[in-house]
C-alpha cells in the first residue's frame, strides 16, 4: 500500500516535470487505476461488495473514462505542449518536493486516528496541493483540466485514507459529477480552441474591471 502511495507521488512529480499534455494524461490514467485499487487494497481483509463497487467504479471513471475523454479532446484540438508555464518545469519539480514535505508535515500534524494511514494522507494532500499548484502555474487550459483531475484524485485519496465511505449512490454521484465536469471542461476547451484559436488561459483576460470602472465615480451621473 505504501508502495502504491510512493508510485502515486512519483507520478505527480512526472506531471510536474512534463511539458506534454499527452504524457500527463497517461500519468493521470495510471493514477486513476492506482486509486481505484486503493480502497480494495486498503480493506483487503474484510472486503465488502460496496468496496468492490467503489473501487471498480473509481478505476473505471478515473483510470479509463476520464483519460479517454481528455485524449479525445487533445486529439480534436491538437494542442501540442505547454511552452512557457508561469513556473518553469525545473522549479516546479523543486517546488513539488517542498509541497511533498509540506503535505507530510500536515499529515503528521493532523494527529490522525489510529486506523488512518499517515502515508496515504500525506500522498492525498500532496495530490491536492500539486493539483492546485499546476492549475495556477500552467497556461494551457488542458493542463488546468488535468490538474483539476489530479486534485480530485487527491481528494478521493484523502477520503480513502481516512477511511471515509459514502453511500454508493453518493459515491457514484460524486464520480459522475466529476466526469460531467471534465466533460464540460473538455467541451469548453474545444470551443476555446475554435473561438479563440488558442487555449492559453493568460490570454483570457477580456473580463476584468480594469476598463469598466471610470476613474471619477459619480461624475458622469
Amino acid at each position: 500500500m505504501n508502495a502504491l502511495a510512493v508510485l502515486l507521488i512519483l507520478s505527480c512529480l512526472l506531471i510536474l516535470g512534463s511539458s506534454r499534455p499527452r504524457v500527463a494524461i497517461q500519468v493521470v490514467a495510471v493514477q486513476g487505476i492506482f486509486l481505484g485499487l486503493l480502497p480494495i487494497l486498503r480493506s483487503w481483509e474484510h472486503l465488502t461488495a460496496g468496496i468492490w463497487i467503489v473501487g471498480i467504479s473509481g478505476l473505471v471513471f478515473k483510470g479509463i473514462l476520464l483519460p479517454w475523454l481528455m485524449q479525445n479532446v487533445l486529439q480534436r484540438t491538437g494542442i501540442q505542449k505547454e511552452t512557457a508555464p508561469y513556473v518553469s518545469f525545473g522549479t516546479s519539480l523543486l517546488l513539488g518536493i517542498v509541497l511533498l514535505a509540506l503535505s507530510a508535515w500536515i499529515a503528521v500534524n493532523l494527529q490522525l486516528p489510529a486506523d488512518a494511514s499517515p502515508v496515504l494522507t500525506a500522498m492525498a494532500m500532496f495530490l491536492v496541493l500539486v493539483g492546485l499548484f499546476l492549475m495556477m502555474s500552467r497556461r494551457k487550459a488542458i493542463m488546468q483540466t488535468l490538474a483539476y483531475l489530479v486534485m480530485e484524485n487527491g481528494v478521493y485519496a484523502l477520503g480513502v485514507s481516512i477511511s471515509l465511505e459514502f453511500p454508493y449512490l453518493v459515491e457514484l454521484g460524486i464520480l459522475l459529477d466529476i466526469f460531467v465536469g471534465v466533460f464540460l471542461m473538455g467541451n469548453l476547451l474545444f470551443h476555446l480552441d475554435r473561438e479563440l484559436q488558442h487555449t492559453d488561459v493568460d490570454k483570457m483576460t477580456e473580463l476584468s474591471d480594469l476598463q469598466t470602472i471610470s476613474s471619477e465615480p459619480g461624475r458622469d451621473a
Binding site: 465536469g181 471542461m185 469548453l188 470551443h191 473561438e195
Partner: peptide, 14 residues
C-alpha cells in the same frame, strides 16, 4: 457562445 461568455464559463467552471 461569444468569446467573453466562453471565458466567463471557463472561469466559472474551474
Amino acid at each position: 457562445r461569444s468569446k467573453t461568455s466562453l471565458e466567463a464559463a471557463w472561469k466559472y467552471l474551474i
